[in-house]
Design a protein around this nucleic acid. Structure first.
Lengths: 343, 343
DNA sequence: ATTAACTTTGATAGCGCTATCACATTTCTA
DNA sequence: TAGAAATGTGATAGCGCTATCAAAGTTAAT
């Protein structure tokens, strides 16, 4: 057994302590913890017991330094967790990556006004293995990420020229187009759009989808309120009067989120507007409450789960070239309309 | 200058490379980066130039290992970022901590269903300096955090016995007691309780607060449904019929979350039950939608904004061991009832 | 000029762990 | 049965950085 040299003694319980306690070499302890199958059952059990007894906690800094191996951390940076489908997407992504041993840090950049660079610096310093940009439109942040050539990037949402080969475009525009077409085919002609959080590209896309569909069917595209307010229930309630005032002929109202739509539904009740007879309403996102609201809410959603899986596959593919990743069938990534009572 | 020994060469640009390039010792480079004031202007500038030229990035693992110093990372783990005020609150906390050189990772545990332990393991492995539990009611997660004695904890939200000395906020039981008392004083006598997610201690406490108040006023405490379902809109809608069937005399219904309560409101509309005349309803949490629902929802909430403001001070206090920190004025930390149309 | 005090710099020796290889042990092949 | 192959184990030597202290340089005071 190797001699245990004099040590600065930080008070920490080290591998050597465990090795001494178990009467084995330090290397064997290291193996017992990292690659148990390469250690005999007898020693492994003895070592496990010593680890338990001494309460040994590995020092990851030392491990990283010695093995020069990367950390198994992937960061997802997003502007904000907007809605239900986003939540599902990220959750799916996280679960898929976890299956391969990665830990995903989902970080909302909006909590870090003007400090995103510090945040990224910290993440980079911890050797994160990849970074996923999710609907990020903060140029400073994007540039910083691009400048760091060492870390693979996946960009979801808006197109960024430098990241063209690592781009996943979630077609919210298409989903909204399909929904609007659905509304039109139901016979509605005076269709308005209620959009909040207009600064976010995600919502700009939804707006654009509505616009495109209305143009395609030669319907007027001016019945639109595009507010900088948060896309929540309150805003939906607050903005409905403006819509009705400006366009009394409105027979259908499409909202860019389910929250807005449910806020509208509440306001309709207060004003004794019968939905869908006097005004049809639809949302976007298929949130949990949309199936029990009164009336229940017609909504559309992208197949977030599949997109999450697709993203995970793409990411794992880039990280681990030899790993066989089943590529999801892109043709299944189509928006799904939930047709309910409100429309 | 020391001799540069043979190195395994991981391809990384090291301090030694910078030192050689700048014609100084490695230690001087280390100082120039970590404690610039201890290096002469001339050398510091020369070193800075070399760092730029070579694109040197420090290896945090090595730094941590050598200095045995902690990382300057604080994690805030929250169940969900509910609304704008919570968002501002966390952002403020983050900025306060950043002023002291800490980087705050705000992490929503809801993205990590059943994988919170892996998440925390990763965080611990990076020697995070402290952990803030923000309205966490996941017992497994809480226990894991408590088990790790090494990392200071601040617990915001529900009372956890083991974290008594690091707790900010109020007993949810008290808030529910106050709310129930409010309902009783309004004249209601047949008051039921609707609780979901019964496995969470948070909801047990709310249930207990109702129970205590009912006993105190000599009212029957059997009108209660305590389900293991999620505390969402759908569950509220689904459970209302059971309540009405079992206790037709019910004149008020307290729900342990606003989501449940709004689900109940939806079901009342479907059944043409007039709120609050036939049945009064109240929630818990003062969620965003409660102020615009139809009817608007009476609810109770803890003063999360103040709680958040105190957190930064308390946390810095614990980390810096400065005892003269301004102690939070506990008298302001009382539950606030939002009295609205539903009751 | 000389001593004392302070400032600046660098060689050394690890921090706790793992890659590597040598050696010991067991199992398999001919 | 000898020899080859596979398996298990441990001593050594760093990973890239910083604590430490000694040495050199600088300034202040006698």
């Amino acid at each position: 057994m190797q001699d245990i040299k004099k040590r600065r003694s930080t008070g920490q319980i080290t591998l050597f302590d465990v090795a001494k306690h178990a009467g084995v070499g330090a290397m064997t302890v290291s193996r017992a913890l990292r690659t148990p199958e390469r250690v005999s059952d007898k020693l492994r059990q003895k070592i496990q017991l010593s680890v338990q007894t001494l309460g040994y906690k590995p020092n990851v800094a030392a491990s990283l330094l010695a093995s020069a191996s990367d950390n198994q951390v992937i960061a997802v940076v997003t502007d904000q967790i907007y809605d239900n489908s986003t939540h599902i997407l990220l959750n799916t992504l996280q679960i898929q990556l976890a299956k391969q041993g990665y830990t995903t840090l989902i970080i909302e950049a909006c909590h870090y006004y003007h400090r995103e660079s510090q945040l990224l610096e910290t993440l980079y310093n911890h050797n994160l293995k990849a970074i996923v940009l999710f609907y990020i439109n903060n140029d400073a942040l994007i540039n910083q990420v691009i400048d760091n050539k060492a870390v693979p990037i996946i960009n979801i949402g808006q197109q960024i020229d430098e990241l063209d080969n690592a781009h996943i475009g979630l077609d919210d525009s298409l989903a909204m187009y399909v929904l609007t077409e659905h509304v039109i085919k139901k016979g509605y002609r005076h269709i308005g759009l209620l959009c909040a959080n207009q600064q976010y590209q995600l919502f700009q896309q939804r707006l654009h989808g509505w616009h495109k569909a209305m143009l395609a069917y030669h319907l007027p595209t001016h019945r639109i309120i595009n507010a900088a307010k948060p896309a929540n229930f309150t805003t939906g309630s607050e903005l409905l009067p403006d819509m009705l005032l400006n366009w009394p002929e409105l027979d259908a109202l499409i909202c860019t989120t389910d929250e807005l739509a449910c806020g509208v539904l509440y306001e309709c009740q207060r004003r004794h507007i019968r939905v869908p007879y006097q005004l049809a309403v639809s949302g976007f996102g298929n949130n949990e409450f949309s199936q029990v609201s009164f009336p229940t809410l017609t909504t559309v959603a992208l197949p977030s789960k599949q997109i999450g899986q697709y993203t995970a596959a793409m990411l794992l593919n880039r990280l681990n070239k030899q790993l066989e990743c089943a590529k999801p069938d892109l043709s299944t990534l189509v928006p799904v309309i939930q047709s309910r009572a409100s429309l």
